[in-house]
C-alpha cells in the first residue's frame, strides 16, 4: 500500500512523515513519533484514554486517521510540561491523587486541559461533562474532580 506524506504540528514541532492511509493517529503518535504517553484502553472510541487535542479540541486518537490530521495542530500529554515544569493540571493531579494507576491519566488531563482553556473556572457539572467520555477504574472520580478544581485555582 502506498504511503502519503503527512505534514502536521505535534507538540509544537512541525513534522513530516510518510504514513499509510490506514494508520490511526494513536499508532502514529505512539509508534512513529514515539510519544507513548497517549494510551489505548479499548477497541475503539469507548474509554477516552487516547484523548489528545487537535486544533485545541479534545479528540480520540484511536478513531482518528493520522492522514486526516494534515495541517492540524496535535497536542499530547507530553506537551504540557514547559521547561520541565509540570502544568497546573499535572501538578494538581499529582498532588491531589487524581491519578492512581495512571493509565487513564493522560487522556483525562488532556480532556481537562481542553475544558480549562475555554472555561477557566468550571463548576462540578462543567467538569463532569468535560470528562464524561474518559473512564477511570481506580479513583471513583472524586479526586479527579478535586484535581481539576485545584488546577483552576478553586
Amino acid at each position: 500500500m502506498t504511503k502519503r506524506l503527512l505534514a502536521l504540528t505535534v507538540n509544537g514541532r512541525m513534522r513530516e512523515d510518510a504514513v499509510a492511509a490506514n494508520l490511526l493517529l494513536l499508532d502514529y503518535l505512539r509508534g512513529t513519533a514515539g510519544l507513548t504517553g497517549t494510551k489505548q484502553g479499548c477497541d475503539g472510541g469507548e474509554c477516552g484514554a487516547c484523548t489528545v487535542l487537535i486544533d485545541g479540541q479534545p479528540r480520540l486518537a484511536c478513531i482518528t486517521l493520522a492522514a486526516a490530521c494534515e495541517g492540524r495542530v496535535v497536542e499530547t500529554i507530553e506537551s504540557l510540561a514547559i521547561e520541565g515544569r509540570m502544568s497546573r493540571l499535572q501538578q494538581a493531579f499529582h498532588e491531589k491523587l487524581g491519578t492512581q494507576c495512571g493509565f487513564c491519566t493522560p487522556g483525562m488531563i488532556m480532556a481537562a486541559e481542553a475544558l480549562l482553556r475555554r472555561n477557566p473556572r468550571p463548576t462540578d457539572a462543567d467538569i463532569r461533562e468535560a470528562l464524561s467520555g474518559n473512564l477511570c477504574r481506580c479513583t471513583g472520580y472524586v479526586k479527579i474532580i478535586e484535581s481539576v478544581h485545584a488546577a483552576a485555582g478553586g
Binding site: 472510541g45 487537535i54 479540541q57 478513531i63 482518528t64 461533562e129 468535560a130 464524561s132 467520555g133
Partner: peptide
C-alpha cells in the same frame, strides 16, 4: 452524544 472527544469530531 457519547463524550466531548466524540462530539468535537
Amino acid at each position: 452524544v457519547a463524550g466531548p472527544g466524540h462530539r468535537s469530531a
